[in-house]
Design a protein around this nucleic acid. Structure first.
Length: 423
RNA sequence: GGAAGGUUAGCAUAACUGGUAAUGCAGCAGUCUUGAAAACUGCCGUACGUGUAACAGCGUUUGCAGGUUCGAAUCCUGCACCUUCCGCCA
């Protein structure tokens, strides 16, 4: 969430930037400031009263120590009236704080200056493209047909066991999935990311910390008995490693990578978009997360984009990088680059990675801070990206590399999968 | 799931017949020294809010949340976590 002090200092800038994100309720900004004014006033009132109470309690203690019990009793009477005035103030203070908090979490993050204006995906700006779209043979088919033909993935079986969107990977399909995970993790750790294996369920505080709550409650599977959320991305547990932590500046940057399955309810999705591997309720993803010095976060964002780009290049997949417009960005993000790969048989672009700088939006909720060289505590900046999401990569690998004779895999994967082609 | 004991500052320990958190180590500054260590002297305890140009100051903070009380580390209730034991178990 945004910091109140910042909203107070840069009120006009905040409104201007929120407008770029197509945020409509700009009056909330002024509401926050007046609520904060009210909070300060009440807090001062409460503190002054409390201070008097403390002093009186001390006096009573001193009087009793001297054996002046009558005077102590008189003093007690005085204190009783003072105390009765404290409770209403405390109640009002708590109410105002609650209201302030509820209001401020409704503000999305401010888009950075580099974010293009716009409302829909059509307004996203293509930064660059790479790789070459393959020309497929005449009988080329989408990946769901290939998966069936070569017995790599069984979608119907997943329907039976769980429901739609929970495919079963089989044989070479399963091996390929595992190999990709391994390859991605190796690639990330070689670039200095520490591998972690986090829990696949998180508590409410963690879901709130990275901004999934209260915004995207309906997107997550919820285990009612224990009040746990199935993670929609490794970003949630991994970033929460640093919740309520105060680290040294010399420990920066923090770089972590994790493989986890991701669970998404995807309520409301239907039709061609959800065919095959395009959109699943459970899928595998390797994530990269960084916590960095505020001065470095945009530099690091570019570094992460280059990191993901090279990974896609190594797989010989045609890709493009989009700078998302204000209206298409996530709630918590300050700037996001999406990576899309071209699915040659479906003839459409599929999102396989989303790399974002959250600046201090998540870390302010998480209270993830570092002590700077002046001894001041500052919020870290958090960033994350997929490196990479598996299903659509798998779909494109199958579709783009198909030939009459079978599917030829890119060279980097050969040692990981233990075979070179599927036929 | 059940029982007992525990949780105090970066670490370690006190206060627990209720009176406003004591001490050691660490840290910072200095004396001494060619330099360092040791010794000695002084300072500082965390975090949040408020406040300030920056300090200072003020309020809160003994795992968390409540309660009793003029006053709670201390008494009461609930919860979390740690240790040990029992039960269950890959």
């Amino acid at each position: 969430m945004l910091q109140v002090a910042f909203i107070r200092q840069q009120t006009e800038l905040v409104k201007e930037r929120l407008a770029v994100k197509n945020f409509k309720e700009l009056q909330l900004v002024d509401e926050i400031i007046s609520l904060d004014d009210e909070r300060k006033k009440l807090q001062l009132e409460w503190e002054n009263t409390q201070s008097k109470l403390n002093a009186s309690a001390k006096e009573i203690g001193a009087l009793k120590a001297k054996g002046q019990n009558d005077e102590a009793e008189t003093k007690k009477q005085e204190v009783a009236t003072l105390k009765s005035s404290l409770q209403p103030i405390a109640d009002r203070l708590a109410a105002v704080e609650q209201q302030l908090n509820d209001t401020i979490v409704r503000l999305p993050n401010l888009p950075s200056a580099k974010v293009p204006k716009g409302k829909t995906p059509e307004d996203n700006v293509t930064v660059r493209e790479g790789g070459k779209k393959p020309s497929l043979h005449n009988g080329a088919v989408p990946h769901w047909d290939l998966a069936k033909k070569y017995n790599l993935i069984d979608f119907e079986l997943g329907n039976k066991i769980t429901g739609s969107g929970f495919p079963v990977y089989i044989g070479k399909g399963a091996k390929l999935q595992r190999a990709l995970i391994q390859y991605f993790l190796d690639y990330n750790t070689a670039a200095g990311y520490l591998e972690v294996m986090p829990p696949h369920m998180v508590n409410e505080a963690s879901a709130f910390g990275t901004g999934q709550l209260p915004d995207k409650e309906g997107q997550m599977y919820f285990v009612t008995e224990d009040k746990f959320y199935m993670i929609p991305t490794a970003e949630v547990p991994v970033t929460n490693i640093y919740r309520d932590e105060l680290i040294k500046e010399t420990d920066l940057p923090v770089k972590m990578t994790a493989y986890t399955p991701c669970f998404r309810r995807e309520a409301g999705s239907y039709g061609k978009d959800v065919r095959g591997l395009n959109r699943l309720h459970q899928f595998d993803k390797v994530e990269i997360v960084q916590l960095v010095h505020p001065d470095k976060s945009y530099e690091v964002l570019e570094e992460m984009v280059n990191h993901v780009e090279k990974l896609l290049q190594s797989l010989n997949l045609p890709y493009r990088i989009l700078n998302l417009c204000g209206g298409d960005m996530g709630f918590a993000s300050a700037q996001t680059y999406d990576f899309e790969v071209f699915s040659a048989a479906q003839e459409k672009w599929l999102e396989v990675s989303s790399v974002s700088n959250f600046e201090a939006y998540q870390t302010n909720r998480l209270k993830a801070r570092f002590k700077d060289s002046n001894g001041k505590n500052q919020m870290l900046h958090s960033l994350n990206g997929s490196s990479l999401a598996l299903p659509r990569i798998l779909a494109c690998l199958l579709e783009n590399n198909q030939a009459e004779t079978g599917i030829q895999l890119p060279a980097v994967l050969h040692s990981y999968v233990g075979y070179t082609s599927i036929s």
